[in-house]
Design a protein around this nucleic acid. Structure first.
Lengths: 259, 259
DNA sequence: CCTAAAATGTTATTTTTTTAACATTATTTT
DNA sequence: AAAATAATGTTAAAAAAATAACATTTTAGG
């Protein structure tokens, strides 16, 4: 059971998030209670350090107010293999030429690709995660296709049956596919089962299939299998991969690019 | 040569950076001039949009603190009817209670709704524009459904056949619908034909249909017709609407909320 | 259903801020 | 240096907000 007062306190905070600071009278009008009620509510919020009060109004303290850009990105400068991922992303982006069509998979490496795309090109881009969308949406000359669906907060990915059928309708010259595990014997894997269908679909919709993964993913197996290594035409990774993968790529006609 | 006034303006800004907001009297004391001098300085800073003034003090505007999220937003503090839209958005958000399901249409007004949603609530949110997605994706307790498709840069909207069928599968308690024109004789209209199908669908998928539009949209007609005014249960707008719409809402049992 | 307590609203008073008009002090121009 | 102008200060009145005291409504418990 949530009291009316608690409800008001929430409302006050959400109003403040939108327009900070706010006057007592404005709050009273919006919430449709008397200014005294607001004042008494504010007293509580002030004691809890949720707001700061001054003559003329109240506001959120600095700590509550910061916009958090990090919320929709996986590519964190402090994350592991960050420099390698950046280089891989750039190498991938440089494979493209004007008027190319591409599909971007999930993950932080593909986010670096999306950051490195040439804004002067007219690309046709299919992606389905928020972190890549943020970047590609700024490419004014490119066409964006985003098969939507249900949001998965851990990967920032959207996925649905209908999204899959949009993917099936849109072919691309290149698909950049990520993986969280790569093994010669157990194939290419990812962590979330909901990714499987999407990954298989984009591999079926694209001419050239490029695996982008830093060397920490090699000799690792995760739960969800979605492809064999030889299903890819190209692998972009960093110098740190075991030699057997170099040999394997050579023998299987897979282009191996290390950056 | 730097004038005394310019020096004070700098001082005011640097004081604000340290403690935001500040009262006029505090500034006057610190800078050791009369409160009138500070007031006149503030007038200049306000015209230059360097500070925001309110009864009781001044503060740095949000724009000075917020990161570069402007690229994927339609809600611009300098846009027309901005204050009205904010109030409308807030009023709309306050209609919701915990565990509600809602659909957010395109536009800047709905963006203000998305900004005002209570992060403590577990909502089920359907939206299809990037500007609203940016905000709702931060609501950790809410479920997000984003029917994707082809990106329309002018409205930041995604739209496709498959998106429509996701919309049809997802019902909501409330749909917040925007419009660019509202007329008694010619109905409710929007500017882009690709919006029509989506708007009609969300109106068909929701129990309560709420039209959100500031008063500048009334007595205006745009190219694409998608509903009659009486198709809505509630209209949220500002005080500036013509009286005939008040009468019409009264006679047709439409709840009219002016903020 | 009634009563006591709590919550909210109303009103008048006090305090603070804002505004405006004019006085004073600085600065520039001639 | 005097006059003109601009900048700043002073003061009083107006407006807005805060406070306090009390009235009313709502809620919880018996």
């Amino acid at each position: 059971m949530i009291s009316k007062q608690e409800e008001r306190l929430e409302k006050i905070l959400s109003i403040l998030k939108l327009s900070n600071p706010a006057t007592v009278n404005k709050l009273a009008q919006l919430i449709e209670v008397s200014h005294m009620t607001i004042r008494r509510d504010i007293e509580i919020l002030e004691r809890e350090k949720k707001v700061e009060v001054f003559h003329g109004g109240i506001m959120l303290p600095d700590s509550q107010r910061r916009e958090n850009w990090k919320e929709y990105t996986l590519a964190d400068a402090t994350s592991i293999m960050c420099e390698e991922k950046k280089r891989i992303g750039l190498k991938a982006a440089l494979m493209l030429k004007n008027n190319d069509s591409l599909i971007l998979d999930t993950g932080s490496t593909t986010e670096y690709i999306s950051q490195s795309l040439n804004p002067e090109y007219s690309l046709s881009i299919v992606c389905f995660t928020l972190n890549t969308l943020i970047h590609v949406s700024k490419l004014k000359k490119s066409k964006i296709i985003f098969p939507g669906g249900y949001f998965h907060r851990n990967t920032l990915m959207f996925e649905s049956e209908e999204g899959i059928s949009i993917l099936k309708k849109n072919r691309a010259a290149i698909a950049f596919v990520s993986a969280s595990g790569i093994s010669l014997s157990l194939g290419v894997t990812c962590s979330n089962s909901y990714e499987r269908e999407t990954k298989k679909t984009i591999m079926g919709s694209s001419m050239k299939k490029v695996l982008v993964a830093d060397s920490s993913k090699f000799d690792i197996v995760h739960s969800t299998y979605f492809a064999e290594l030889q299903d890819f035409d190209t692998v972009i990774t960093d110098e740190g991969i075991p030699d057997k993968y170099r040999t394997f790529c050579n023998n299987n006609n897979i282009e191996l690019l290390t950056v």
